[in-house]
Simulated assay, not measured.
Amino acid sequence: MAIFVNENTKVLVQGLTGGQGKYHGRRNRDYGTQIVGGVTPGKGGQDVDGIPIFNSVAEAVEATGADASFAAVPPKFASDAIIEAAEAGIGFVVCITEGIPAQDEALTFNRLVREFPNTRLLGPNCPGIISPGKCNIGITAGEIAQEPTADGPNVGIVSRSGTLTYQALYELKQLGIGVSTCVGIGGDPVPGTNFIDCLAEFQNDPETHAIMMLGEIGGSAEEEAAEFIQANVTKPMSAYIAGVTAPAGKKMGHAGAIVSGGKGTAQGKMDALAAAGVKVGLNPTEAGELMGEIVKSL
């Protein structure tokens, strides 16, 4: 199994005719993902490298049976694109767009919760999701992901940072460790899917035998995840938290990565995870090596 997406997932690319949508949409298709159509208002009837374009998500869903969407549109249009997908019955939306105002993110997220509870949003400002060998939605290079094996052990990965997502995948591939699913939740203040959502799915996924978590400074998501792990997660875990040397009060890359009021520090997050039984590495490579030790013991 895998979480959220698998080989049967049918994907639309909102913004397929744009530069980013075209590049990553075709890469996702070439990886083996079922990219069944694209959506660009006013360009219906055209195609991108054989992928049909539709004027609306509703039209595309009716024609293709798509159940997932990859939103690769500018910040100005991203919120509308997400809601349009939800209105059309899309159950899983991946939005890679960076620079969406936090207020727009909050409004969109709460509208999804209130009006479209059957639609899950991943992102925005995230690398996407890959279930190796089955489905890749977003900007992750499929060649760095080790496919899971039937008997395992296989590892599930969840990360706030795109770059750390890629490194975690590569660290495990270097060790020959298969990955069930890797989820990049993004570093914005209002993520559509959080650590706890992914941890709960991995805990219930029989193909996932251990979990690797990559966090960073800012907010309280990692501390909340630690509480959830202590109460609900029985599978062994390793983790890494970025930002040990970050100065307080200064935004570091991600909009959500800011330490304020003595909260959200890397050390505080590391301590919380360690107290929950997670093996915490001091760098991404060490977190990968710790996972290697965990896998050997399974």
Rank of each mutant, 00 (worst) to 15 (best):
A141W: 00
G187N: 06
V183I: 12
A145R: 01
N204M: 09
D205N: 15
P148R: 01
E143V: 12
G184F: 04
Y170W: 12
E171R: 10
I196F: 14
P206H: 11
T163S: 13
A168S: 11
I157V: 15
T163I: 02
P189S: 02
T181S: 15
G162N: 07
Y170E: 13
K173C: 02
G178T: 07
P191V: 08
V190C: 12
G142R: 00
L164S: 08
A150P: 00
T149L: 10
T140Q: 15
E147P: 00
D188M: 03
S180Q: 05
G176K: 11
T140K: 08
T149W: 07
P189Y: 04
I144C: 10
G152T: 00
N204Y: 01
V183F: 05
P191F: 03
N154V: 01
I137Y: 04
G138M: 05
G156C: 09
T140D: 09
D205F: 13
V190T: 14
P206C: 13
L169A: 14
N204E: 14
E147H: 01
S159R: 03
N154P: 03
Q167W: 09
N194V: 13
A168M: 08
V183L: 08
A168E: 01
E147R: 03
I177V: 14
L199G: 09
I139M: 11
V158N: 01
L164N: 10
V190P: 07
C198Y: 01
Q203E: 15
E171A: 11
Y166M: 12
E207W: 05
E201F: 03
I157L: 14
P148M: 02
V183Y: 04
C198D: 02
V179Y: 08
T149R: 11
V183C: 09
Y170G: 00
P153R: 02
S180H: 07
Y166G: 11
P191E: 04
I185Y: 12
L175W: 00
S161G: 08
T181E: 12
T208Q: 05
A150E: 10
E201I: 01
T140V: 15
I157A: 11
Q203T: 14
I177S: 08
G178W: 07
S180V: 05
G138K: 05
G178D: 08
R160Y: 06
G176D: 12
A141T: 07
Q146H: 09
S161H: 07
P189N: 03
G186C: 06
E147K: 08
G178A: 11
P189T: 03
D151M: 01
N194C: 14
Y166W: 13
Q174E: 15
G138Q: 06
G138A: 10
L172S: 07
L172P: 03
P148E: 03
V179A: 12
Y170V: 00
T163C: 01
G142L: 00
P191R: 04
S180P: 05
G138V: 07
Q167I: 14
Y166L: 13
I139D: 03
L175T: 01
I137N: 06
D151I: 01
D197T: 10
L172A: 10
T140M: 15
A145V: 09
P153T: 02
Q203Y: 13
Q174G: 15
L164I: 10
A141Q: 11
P148H: 03
V183Q: 04
A141S: 12
